[in-house]
Design a protein around this nucleic acid. Structure first.
Lengths: 156, 156
DNA sequence: CAAAACTTTCAGAGATCTTTGAAGATTTAG
DNA sequence: CTAAATCTTCAAAGATCTCTGAAAGTTTTG
């Protein structure tokens, strides 16, 4: 295992995240935080390590903080800002994506109102609304189940 | 309820789909098929109705067919190709998105190999792998549960 | 309090992605 | 078999999004 190997793995992960819709610089910053050797990382370390501008790092940190994936670390030795992945970040990311499910549900619902319940389109839209309604109800429960299982495993 | 209302609702739905990563023309074609008054629709009807080129419609149909959301209808009156939403399309779409979950799982797994199980990064990556492993196992079961519920409702 | 280090913002360059439109291939009707 | 209609492909124009780099604003240190 060499440093290059972890860098490669980090870059592959960034690529995967980017394919999921995250912008590239943001994905690389997130991967950088994931693969960091230390508990937390500063913005200049990220910029240097990834070879991107401080502006890009700033934007990425802002975005990742907003959606709750990373957090400022309360200054270990009162130095500059340090950042790290938040505990439960992945569950957070999935919950965020659940907003998409909700949007689909609402779009279907509005569609039914517009097209009429008894039209051909109305029946199609009802299947859609049913499906996303179900998912919107069940996905949070699934995430919760993971949290519970994880807590259980840790308590052992 | 007017025609304009259903057109508006269709456009809003297309926007929602596009925000989920689908390209705009493809999203509009899908919305057009969802909101269509008839059982199935031809490519020229879609192009005319949406005001986009036949090339865009062709590309959209190809993409939507590939992922299994729509299907060619076996020529009602032996005319030109007709298309319609497939039964269970939404479950299919969700399953497709499950590929993303799998990719995240695999990225985490490779990351652990590269960083080492006992490193700081390794522990972070293990939480990630756990989470996506769980989701990758459970999401198909959830979709299956919906199929079962739906089938049950229909049998009544 | 001044200087140094860091962070944020933003306009413009650059990269990427989409759509069009026309040419060529395919299919159906006569 | 020929003509008409439809469908697919693809290069290039256009639109959109992203990153950089520099300037301005903060915070910390000496």
């Amino acid at each position: 295992m060499t440093l290059a190997d972890t860098t490669d793995a980090a870059e592959r992960m960034a690529l995967t995240l980017a394919q999921g819709g995250m912008q590239k610089a943001t994905a690389r910053v997130l991967a950088g935080l994931l693969f960091a050797d230390s508990e937390s990382v500063t913005a200049p370390e990220l910029a240097d390590g990834l070879g991107i501008s401080s502006g890009s790092v700033s934007g990425a940190i802002k975005m990742l903080s907003t959606v709750g994936l990373i957090e400022r670390v309360p200054a270990p030795g009162s130095r500059r800002e340090h950042y790290r992945l938040r505990d439960g970040a992945w569950a957070t990311l999935m919950s965020t994506q659940n907003g998409m499910v909700q949007a689909m549900f609402e779009a279907a619902d509005q569609g039914i109102d517009a097209a009429g319940r008894d039209s051909v389109a109305g029946r199609r839209l009802e299947e859609m609304r049913d499906f996303y309604g179900f998912m919107f109800r069940e996905l949070p429960a699934l995430v919760e189940r993971w949290r519970a299982e994880r807590a259980g495993r840790r308590a052992e």
